[in-house]
Design a protein around this nucleic acid. Sequence first.
DNA 1: AAGGTTTTTGACTGTCCGGTCAATAACGTA
DNA 2: TACGTTATTGACCGGACAGTCAAAAACCTT
Lengths: 202, 202
Amino acid sequence: MPRPRKFLESDVVSSASEVFAVHGLAAATLDDLVRATGLGKQSLYNAFGGKRELFFRALSEDREEAARAVSEALGHDDASPLERIRGHLLRMAIEFSSSDRRVSLTTRALVESTGEEDPLSTATKAGIEQLAGVYAQCLEHARENGDLPADANVQSLAVYFVAVTRGMELLGRAGVGRSVLTAVALDALRVLHGQRMEEARE
Amino acid sequence: MPRPRKFLESDVVSSASEVFAVHGLAAATLDDLVRATGLGKQSLYNAFGGKRELFFRALSEDREEAARAVSEALGHDDASPLERIRGHLLRMAIEFSSSDRRVSLTTRALVESTGEEDPLSTATKAGIEQLAGVYAQCLEHARENGDLPADANVQSLAVYFVAVTRGMELLGRAGVGRSVLTAVALDALRVLHGQRMEEARE
DNA sequence: AAGGTTTTTGACTGTCCGGTCAATAACGTA
DNA sequence: TACGTTATTGACCGGACAGTCAAAAACCTT
């Protein structure tokens, strides 16, 4: 019997995500969010509780989405695990060299967090570990495949790839172009060449 | 005959740098700066022209300082170029795993810049290129030394190292610990092992 | 069709903050 | 020791912004 909402929470979170990715948490004004989501301030407040809470919702959606995307990219069975990582990194190079101003919310949260105890900080750390877990899984497959030395440290390699992709993201936002970023990705992949890996085009 | 200043600009810029590194440009209040520098608002304004201008001063000092530091780390003649890079990266791993909240001003500027034309953005890009130049120089020496294949792409490797260090910085701020970050650094260095490189302790 | 519940709308508020102004202090010179 | 110049001090201003309040609207059930 209550009046129903005119919006889907997921739509709102997704629009808000966009705003936060471009402006960051602090710099995004409630007005930006109102404009982007189409809701009124009060509706936003009713449904989510305020800017910060909305950001957290967007952040966790973003984390989930990022992990899902990487997981999917690394999970196809049409290529060897190492080739999948290669493809993924090359795709990231292209994505990060696009000229929009989006920065992943995890990075945003990280940079805007104040202090070790900040919820933003813990959420960020969790996000990074989640992402590293996805890489680790794929690398583990590669190791089982014999594409990686048996004594390869899969865990640290996974974190390494998170670091590299974060770095590529930043460089992309700084205006480093597609070709350079692609070269960087290829360089990064040489880490895996304990044994030779197939050369591929582009 | 005019009344002399009670402060050194360089001291003020350096204190301000600290504030900006911890809080960022937007989140640092003029009051933070007043407290950190010991100057009054008006004095700050007289000497620098406002928060943004002060940030630019701090940024360019920070860039210069970062380039100088890396350049020095990579410039000693007591080890081969590759070993110097190795030492440098391991030192970065330790520095970035410290628990303070400092983030390099170049990264801050990057994340807070809005649009391709923002002065913040161009300053950032220049900073990255400057840093890459330093790496490139050292890598070029390595190539001349025969420590790197003659056809190694020194330019992209240089950018690669900038990306890796930015990524390590971010991960460190997220709370990734010293040992993991060190492992990441060692992974990153494997890129250079076209031919074997001396194994070292730690 | 009437009522109860929740959403929506839009105006309002109190705070914070960057920047400014005007008055005062401090210094070197002559 | 007085004067001119510049630094300093502290009060002040206008705007932006997160969050709130209360009235009106919309829906579903009975």
